[in-house]
């Protein structure tokens, strides 16, 4: 295992217990930092708008990313399309802190994800289950997040993905050596990583929740289900009072086990993002990724 990969996993460890917020300009980035975000995700359109406007969603303009990087002192992440290794090369050249190879953007390759091991910069990738998470880690991802269903404000998929992963890990821990071999085939994941998870009792990298978090309660729900931290995409800047909501979600992630604090921070936040029921959407981003 390379030193750089260890360092990249280490950065994700520093983000634990924190909230990573989608921002589309320098001003929003400053608001996010001021509200207590541990990192920002720089992008041109939040997932809710990508969903509404349709078309091909690509990596953001480097100019925007540079402006956001200049505006804040916390880590800056940016998204590239699944399999689009040149977008990833460009993002690495911009010297940002983390790349999200994201299903929210339109995939560039329907068979291969980026060979993340050939990069120095860290990658976070979405996953719906243990097999997908381990395939991404095998490719070099140093952080995992649930896919959820971005841009909906509906938490159901994130819950499903987190529960699926933890339940698979629990079953794996109880398996014999032979059963693990079979399970690794079922998962479509390399046996060495399956063995590692069985030993650790968790993923070998930090695992955040993402996709559909809209309220402090949603964020705390994901934390109680075992997430290491939370990504909030459209949930903040598509709500009535982004500053107040951002601060509330940060507090909810820290005190996720304290219903009194959660009640306090949930009060009078103004309207949440409108939201779409996951059963009513045309394109399901969570199905992107192989």
């Amino acid at each position: 295992m390379s030193t750089q990969y260890e360092l990249n996993k280490n950065l994700a460890q520093m983000l634990k217990g924190g909230v990573i917020m989608d921002v589309t300009n320098a001003e929003q980035a400053k608001i996010a930092e001021e509200a207590g975000a541990v990192a920002v995700m720089a992008l041109e359109r939040v997932p809710a708008d990508i969903r509404k406007q349709g078309g091909v969603a690509r990596m953001s303009d480097p100019k925007l990313i540079k402006e956001i990087k200049k505006a804040v002192s916390i880590p800056v992440m940016a998204k590239c399309r699944i399999g689009h290794f040149v977008e990833a090369q460009i993002l690495e050249a911009l010297d940002i802190d983390y790349i999200d190879e994201s299903e929210v953007l339109t995939p560039a390759d329907d068979q291969y994800h980026i060979d993340k091991k050939s990069f120095k910069i860290p990658f976070v990738c979405g996953a719906r289950d243990l097999g997908e998470a381990l395939r991404r880690i095998n490719e070099g991802a140093s952080m995992i997040r649930t896919k959820g269903e971005a841009g909906t404000g509906d938490i159901i998929q994130a819950v499903r993905h987190m529960r699926t992963m933890t339940s698979q890990i629990r079953k794996l821990k109880a398996m014999t050596k032979e059963e693990r071999i079979l399970f690794s085939k079922e998962l479509g994941a390399p046996l060495n990583l399956v063995e590692q998870v069985a030993e650790l009792g968790k993923l070998p990298v930090v695992n955040f929740a993402a996709g559909g978090v809209a309220t402090p309660a949603d964020a705390a729900l994901m934390m109680q289900l075992g997430s290491d931290g939370v990504f909030v995409g459209s949930g903040i800047f598509k709500s009535k009072d982004p500053i107040k909501r951002a601060k509330a979600i940060v507090k909810a992630v820290t005190y996720f086990n304290d219903p009194k604090v959660l009640a306090e921070v949930s009060e009078d936040l103004g309207e949440a993002m409108v939201g779409i029921n996951c059963d009513e959407i045309n394109i399901s981003y969570e199905k992107r990724g192989w």
Partner: peptide, 12 residues
């Protein structure tokens, strides 16, 4: 961790 985040939380 992130000092800006922790710094805010110790205040709040």
């Amino acid at each position: 961790g992130e000092s800006t985040t922790i710094g805010k939380l110790i205040k709040d």
